[in-house]
């Protein structure tokens, strides 16, 4: 079991280092440049299907947006843009 833990730890560490290095050299596509629709597609899908914008009204989307900003640890810019996009469909 201890061996498995070490192997698991080493694999994760190497993987993490590779990812960090890659992300440092990746193109800096800032969230500010992304549309609300793009952020909606990318972030909601991490846990569940992307919601249909017309399922809730503007006030409901604001409440759900705050709830999801907390639950999914979205940045404030992401949450604001996603809510604006969802409200724009109403």
């Amino acid at each position: 079991m201890i061996k498995i833990k070490y192997i698991f730890g080493i694999v994760i560490s190497i993987f993490t280092v590779i990812i960090i290095l890659q992300s440092c050299t990746a193109q800096k596509a800032m969230i500010a440049n992304k549309s609300g629709a793009q952020l909606w597609g990318e972030n909601c899908l991490r846990c569940h299907n992307t919601p249909t914008p017309t399922d809730f009204n503007d006030e409901e989307w604001k409440t759900i947006g705050l709830h999801m900003q907390d639950r999914a640890n979205l940045t404030n810019v992401e949450a604001t843009k996603i809510v604006e996009f969802l409200c724009s469909a109403n």
Partner: peptide, 15 residues
């Protein structure tokens, strides 16, 4: 306490 932060093109979340 918790939140999400932008780190260049990456993101970090903490709790």
């Amino acid at each position: 306490i918790k939140g999400g932060l932008q780190l260049g093109s990456s993101k970090l979340s903490y709790a």
